[in-house]
């Protein structure tokens, strides 16, 4: 098996429709929709949950690749990545069940592979910075907001299940912080490149201004400052992220 594999080798059942993120955003905008589903209607919640489900699939696949791609990394790194594979596989199961709970089906909305592409960084430090800190940080934002909305609409099933997923994601961010530090110890240039990669992912996933600092019901994706602090992001990092959201179109 190649290390890493080509982006386009990511395999899906035929029931999943894959499209470029840019195309999906543009086609939504052409129809007068927001480029990224908000949480304002049952259908948009279902679409958001479906997007999370495929994101969890790609997170599982990415963590699995990290287990395979870096045989010379410390054993504890491999253990953390293997644990993450298991966690993400349970998250997929949870989100499949939530899609069912919301009356949807797997494949109901197009899948974009932008997350997967981020999970294909060739350097282990860049990968954990980008995936565990960048993408799992995004997951903290998305899940904290979803829990808030679930409370508001009185859906204890979503609220409880997603809260457990959020707890796992916080753990994954911590793993990312640990391994970013350990893998780049005594190598500031490698660390700089890894942090730069994470920043580029943060910018990309500001989703054309959808992610912002603000109340969960007022912005597309609300930055979950409390969850991020719990996950080990510093106040300086959170402020830097908020600033980056003010200048990053994606579509």
């Amino acid at each position: 098996m190649d290390r890493p594999i080509a982006y386009d080798k990511l395999a899906r059942e035929n029931r999943f429709v894959r499209m470029r993120a840019r195309d999906v955003g543009e086609l939504r905008v052409e129809q007068g929709l927001a480029p990224f589903p908000d949480l304002a209607s049952p259908e948009s919640i279902r679409e958001r949950v479906h997007g999370i489900m495929v994101g969890e699939l790609q997170a599982m696949e990415g963590a699995g690749r990290s287990v395979y791609d870096f045989p010379d990394a410390p054993w504890e790194f491999t253990m953390d990545m293997a644990r993450q594979v298991w966690d993400e596989s349970r998250h997929v199961e949870i989100y499949l069940a939530l899609i069912d709970h919301l009356g949807g089906y797997a494949g109901e909305f197009p899948e974009t592979t932008i997350l997967w592409r981020c999970a294909c960084a060739e350097d282990a430090a860049a990968r954990v910075a980008g995936v565990n800190r960048g993408l799992e940080g995004l997951a903290c934002d998305v899940f904290a907001q979803l829990i808030h909305i679930a409370k508001k609409i009185g859906d204890p099933v979503i609220e409880r299940a997603v809260d457990f997923v959020l707890a796992d994601e916080i753990t994954h961010v911590r793993m990312g912080s640990r391994w970013l530090n350990e893998l780049t110890r005594d190598d500031p240039e490698r660390r700089r490149r890894a942090v730069e990669f994470q920043d580029s992912i943060d910018e990309r996933f500001n989703l054309g201004g959808a992610r912002r600092d603000g109340a969960p019901e007022e912005v597309g994706i609300s930055i979950a400052k409390d969850a991020r602090r719990l996950a080990g992001f510093t106040d300086e990092e959170i402020e830097r992220l908020i600033k980056s959201t003010q200048r990053s179109p994606v579509y």
Binding site: I5, L10, E13, S66, V67, D69
Partner: peptide, 15 residues
């Protein structure tokens, strides 16, 4: 075996 299975996940279509 564990590393191989981890690498295969992305290559495997069937859920």
């Amino acid at each position: 075996m564990m590393r191989t299975m981890g690498g295969w996940i992305a290559l495997t279509a069937e859920l």
